[in-house]
């Protein structure tokens, strides 16, 4: 592996006095456990979203033509594509934030977290301002609230497509929103000097969470917007 080891003996920041919780034998065990727990949580996230993917797969299989028509008609791939790039970049910046913690550079953590959050907010603003609000105005809403009139497919599959589009993207958007708050909390903790080479577990787990949000979007984007 290409993992690098560097000497950081000359740093004596306040966070270096990190003490692990009493029921752990050592800090390494605690760190590994926190990471394993986070990965298990990410596994549950993937399985939760698999419900949307499964519903999508089933209806894409049952109604391939109308599904494609609805996708082309209701969704603009340029918005989805832009948001994909934004999320990919934010994933990179949060990796850089963790790198900052490992190198014990407080401001590197902070600026990268800020960049991540700006990306996340951009995603949400684009999503809501350029997609959700126009759609709500036009009445392109799930079944009970659908007032658009005659859709492109001429069938009720419009409702179905929009139903899955709304619940899947809204659930994903909620995850992004939660991410914004957690990353904001990380920024506060950074400024308090709580992250350093020995204690960036919380930061790393936040990063893992943020990446899974990214990965889910990587799948949602082509499925909903492109094909």
């Amino acid at each position: 592996m290409t993992s690098v080891s560097v000497e950081t003996t000359n740093t004596a920041e306040p966070h270096e006095t990190y003490v692990h919780q009493h029921h752990w034998r050592n800090a390494d065990d605690e760190k590994d456990a926190a990471k394993l727990g986070m990965w298990l949580f990410l596994g549950t996230e993937a399985l939760m979203f698999s419900g949307f993917f499964c519903a999508y797969a089933v209806f894409r299989m049952l109604y391939p033509d109308t599904w494609k028509q609805a996708s082309d008609y209701y969704l603009d791939w340029r918005i989805g594509g832009f948001n994909t790039l934004v999320l990919v970049i934010s994933s990179f910046t949060i990796v850089q934030a963790i790198r900052g913690a490992q190198l014990n550079k407080k401001m590197m953590i902070f600026w990268n977290l800020l960049a991540t959050n700006i990306c996340a907010l951009t995603f949400l603003v684009v999503k809501i301002g350029w997609e959700y609000i126009p759609k709500i105005r036009a009445g392109e809403l799930p079944g009970a609230f659908f007032t658009y009139g005659h859709g492109p497919t001429g069938t009720t599959h419009d409702h179905l497509f929009l139903g899955i589009y709304w619940v899947a993207t809204a659930t994903h958007g909620l995850h992004v929103l939660i991410g914004v708050f957690v990353i904001g909390w990380c920024m506060i903790r950074t400024m308090k000097g709580q992250f350093g080479p020995k204690n960036y577990m919380f930061l790393e787990n936040t990063g893992l969470y943020w990446h899974i949000v990214d990965v889910i979007w990587i799948f949602l984007f082509p499925m909903l917007y492109l094909v």
Binding site: T2, S3, V6, E7, T8, T9, I98, R99, Q102, P197
Partner: peptide, 11 residues
């Protein structure tokens, strides 16, 4: 005094 640092290149 040893810490793993995420390598920049692969990222």
């Amino acid at each position: 005094n040893h810490h793993h640092v995420t390598p920049l290149g692969p990222m």
